[in-house]
Amino acid sequence: MKKIEIIIPDRELQTVGAVLKDNNIGGMSHYRVQGKGISKAEPVSIGRGTMQYTPEFVPRTKIEIVVKDDVVDKLVNNLLDTLSDKIGGKIFITEAQEAIDIRTKARGESAI
């Protein structure tokens, strides 16, 4: 099993969700993160509109999924094909040691 973390601009959540659905991946989690990398944050107005300030961190959405090993390559290729190369973001893949379904007590791949 692999855990895949996908960090993307918020607006791409729907796109990634559609790719996951096409690959028959039924479960996912996502949350808002603040990070920094190559992209610069948009300046925001402060002090009654007399000044502006560029925040250090940029808001992004992070999606986490855990999938069977054999779907990883196709999924990642699909994601890279669908997401434009103008989009700043990252994909991280790590080994997931164990998965446990709380309701059915199932373990391993049948739990995901």
Binding site: P43, S45, R48, G49, T50, M51, Q52
Partner: peptide, 15 residues
């Protein structure tokens, strides 16, 4: 505020 910070802002309008 438009001229100085590049964009007109709500906080400037209300203040």
């Amino acid at each position: 505020s438009w001229k100085r910070t590049g964009k007109p802002t709500v906080s400037a309008a209300i203040n």
